[in-house]
Amino acid sequence: MKNKLELPLLEDYLDGKLSLDQRLEIEKLLTTDSELEAEVQALMLAREAIEMHGWKTDIAKTQEAYLDTRKIRSIDSSPTQNSKPNWYLRIAASASIILVGLATFIFIKTSPESLDQHFLSYQVPVMRGSAEIESRIKKAYQSEDYQEVIEMAALDSELDLDSRFLLGMAYLELGKGKEAVDELQIIEKINESSSIKLYVEETDYYLFRAYLMNGDYNLAQNQIEKIRSNTRHKYYQNVNRWDAMKIKILELKN
């Protein structure tokens, strides 16, 4: 390996031009011959540096041309004295274009997903020091095994309110808006006929999300109004007029 052919042979090795036997022979030598290894590394570095030097030259030329063009552009577009009378007109025109552009942008960008991304998933409260034995459904929900929540709930003929709410949340997490609405509406009905009301405000908020998921924008709008009408509502800060406007846009786009 230490003859004049060494470098071209190593180049063929790096370029994958050698036969399998030749390649294996070099690879075997590389594991034992540190001098050869250093030679290969130096060759790889040298070839990479030559190529990068070429790129560097091209980049430098492009940068020079770009900066020259930019200078010319800035001279061409610099204001002259004659252009002063048109100045205010230009600002007004620009502002109009920006407003129209902004409105178009908002209209195009508003989608159910753009609203949905602000939602927070329901988190089961942690009861510090509580000796409460957590239900299996709650544990499955906490470990984000939503399918397990649904399957366990299906086996329970007398689902309590906690579990039913988590079932609704599990459907929401899995993008099953219709099923989530069904469960949350059952909770609303139970609360209407019960003296102890649970998950009232949570139900308001997550129904909003479920309606939105189903494309029932009118019903989602009602939920926003319900939440916004009560400044003490737990989710008052989570929905705003901007959300209401976005839903109106979605209705229009529908």
Partner: peptide, 24 residues
């Protein structure tokens, strides 16, 4: 690589041109 590029720049003009034309 900057360091090796500097070594490349120290080669003679003909060498630089040959290597540049071949590898780049």
């Amino acid at each position: 690589l900057k360091y090796v590029m500097a070594l490349f720049e120290k080669l003679g003009d003909t060498c630089r041109r040959i290597l540049q034309l071949f590898y780049y």
